[in-house]
């Protein structure tokens, strides 16, 4: 396993632990959740294979599901994001393309690009997560409130963390 592979492996556990130990208990106003673990999928190298990405997404989501007692729910949403990620990256390629070996991070491509990249994917993730959990659209507006509040919370945390640790992902 290459050096970056080992780092990703450690990061996987770091994200999972932070999610289940800390963020699971941190729900603002009973509506805003922080599903930081999705950042692991978002911030992987740009050139990663979609198949690998989906399998990793499935394992990550499944691990989170074990702790949330929501068998399959997080796995579903995460696999969806993993599948769409590379297509979305291709769609929003900046002029001149991505640098080789580039990561999909804020430090590599700038804040504006990063927001355009991450917000729709995080929104989709939360959309499926909350509507499947509610098993339908009975609680439509309340679910939408949760989705938007969580979107703001999760995105802010992901962006802030990248400002705090700008070097981490270049390894």
């Amino acid at each position: 396993m290459s050096r970056s592979g080992i780092i990703q492996f450690i990061l996987f556990f770091a994200y999972t632990l932070v999610q289940v130990l800390l963020l699971r208990n941190l729900v603002l106003f009973n509506t805003a959740f922080c599903f930081l673990y999705i950042a692991f999928i978002l911030l992987l190298p740009i050139e990663i294979n979609t198949l690998v990405l989906m399998v990793v997404g499935f394992i990550l989501g499944f691990t989170i599901d074990i702790f949330y007692d929501s068998m399959g729910l997080h796995a579903f949403a995460t696999v969806l994001v993993a599948y769409l990620r590379n297509y979305w990256l291709a769609t929003i390629t900046p002029q001149g393309g991505y640098d080789s070996n580039s990561t999909a991070t804020l430090s590599a491509n700038g804040l504006q690009w990063f927001l355009v990249y991450s917000i729709p994917l995080i929104f989709l993730h939360h959309l499926f997560l909350f509507f499947i959990e509610a098993s339908g659209f009975v609680l439509f507006w309340y679910s939408m409130l949760k989705i938007v509040a969580s979107l703001i919370f999760t995105t802010s945390v992901i962006v802030l963390l990248q400002y705090l640790a700008p070097q981490r992902r270049r390894l």
Partner: peptide
């Protein structure tokens, strides 16, 4: 692969 994984998740749910 996407389809298979999502169906597996749906089945789990």
């Amino acid at each position: 692969t996407f389809l298979v994984l999502e169906l597996a998740c749906a089945w789990l749910i």
